[in-house]
Nucleic acid binder design. Structure first.
Lengths: 115, 115
DNA sequence: CTTACATATTGACAAGTGTCGATGTGATGG
DNA sequence: CCATCACATCGACACTTGTCAATATGTAAG
């Protein structure tokens, strides 16, 4: 069984020097976002009608083969960025907003907090 | 000359479906963050005393060879996340906060605005 | 059961990437 | 000049990764 990325996450980058382990964990998360196909899939699910999208509706617009799309969706789920629910023969995906927020905070503290 | 990543950046992921080109550009940026050594270097420069750090002080703590560190710093500069200034025989690096902020916003709109 | 369909898994391969040793480039100091 | 130091570039190599065709798994319909 390989390293599970989806557990916790994200000591902020701008505050303090990251240790090798924290850095590796964060890097693994960014690696999931470091692919055009995955970013497009993520945005497609985020823009879907009821907040969820069927895999069957993602294959054609993303312009990759069905196995490739399934592979990318699997990585996004493993990283905790998407949730999968199987209904009948279809697989439905939703974004996990908290996970995205955590990633965002890892890039620095809140932008401009009122004091 | 290859694709320069440091020009503009970042149509947000959560609003609308990304096109292949925008996705590729964003992915290229995330790819730079998708490495433990680079994340550590970034955090080290961010945590440096006067807001800048000499490359000579980064090699040992990051635990990689000098050429490897130079390579990673070069990628961070090319991505616009760091600025380099040569003074004498030393190279000094500063973070580019706007660039980090842009990346953060690409992960979604502002977290939770007071209504 | 059989067929059809949606999705996941496997195997294979080309391309990309992190790493280091060796070497190149410039600046500083004798 | 010549030696030294800081940094960048080059060449090579092991390892990772995105991709697809083929196949397996599982569900629904007849």
């Amino acid at each position: 069984m390989e390293r599970d990325v989806a557990t916790l996450c994200c000591p902020p980058v701008t505050a303090g020097v990251l240790g090798e382990d924290d850095a590796a964990e964060l890097a693994a998360l960014f690696k999931v976002l470091a692919d055009p196909a995955r970013l497009r899939l993520l945005s497609m699910v985020a823009a879907a009608d009821a907040g969820e999208a069927c895999a069957c509706d993602l294959v054609e617009p993303v312009g990759r083969s069905q196995p490739t799309v399934s592979h990318h969706l699997g990585l996004l789920v493993e990283a905790g960025l998407l949730e999968r629910e199987k209904r009948g023969k279809w697989a439905w995906y939703r974004v996990v907003p908290d996970r995205l927020a955590a990633l965002r905070e890892a890039l620095g503290p809140v932008p401009a907090g009122p004091r």
